Amino acid sequence: MGIVVVTTSPGFGTVGRVPGKISERGWEFIRCIDTSRPDGGVAEYRERMDFLVVGLIPATAEMIASAPRLKGILKHGVGVDNIDIAAATARRIPVLNAPGTNANAVAELAIGSMFSLARRIPMLHRVVTDGGWQRHVGSEIEGKVLGVVGLGNIGKTLARKGRALGMRVLASDPYPDVDFAKEHGVEIVELRDVLAQSDFVSLHVFGGKDNAHLIGAEEIALMKKTAYLMNFARGEVVDTEALYDALANDRLMGAAIDAYVQEPPDRAHPIFSHPRVVFTPHSGADTTEAVERMGLMNIADIEAILDGQRPARVLNPEIYR
Rank of each mutant, 00 (worst) to 15 (best):
H125V: 14
R119T: 09
H125K: 10
K156C: 10
D130I: 02
V137C: 08
S172W: 13
G143R: 11
G152I: 05
A159K: 02
D130A: 14
G166T: 03
R163H: 08
D130H: 15
M123H: 15
R168C: 00
S172D: 13
K156I: 01
T129R: 11
R120L: 06
A171R: 03
V149C: 12
V137E: 10
G166E: 05
K156L: 10
E142A: 15
Q134H: 12
V169R: 04
V128P: 04
L165H: 14
K144C: 12
T129C: 00
G147C: 06
R135D: 07
P122C: 12
L124P: 04
R160H: 00
G143W: 07
T157P: 04
D130S: 13
H136V: 15
G147S: 07
G166N: 05
G155L: 06
G162Q: 08
R120W: 10
M123G: 06
T129M: 03
M123D: 15
L146A: 12
I141W: 04
L151V: 00
V169Q: 05
V169A: 01
G152K: 00
L151P: 01
H136A: 11
T129P: 06
L151T: 05
R135W: 13
N153D: 14
G138H: 07
H136G: 00
E140C: 01
G150S: 02
V128A: 10
I121F: 06
R119Q: 13
I121C: 02
A159Y: 05
V127N: 11
V149P: 06
I121R: 03
R120H: 15
I154A: 04
G150P: 05
V145E: 08
K161R: 13
I121N: 11
M167R: 09
M167V: 08
V148F: 01
L158G: 09
N153W: 00
K144A: 12
R119H: 10
L146N: 04
G152R: 00
M167G: 09
V127K: 06
D130N: 14
T129Y: 08
P122D: 12
V137G: 03
P122Y: 02
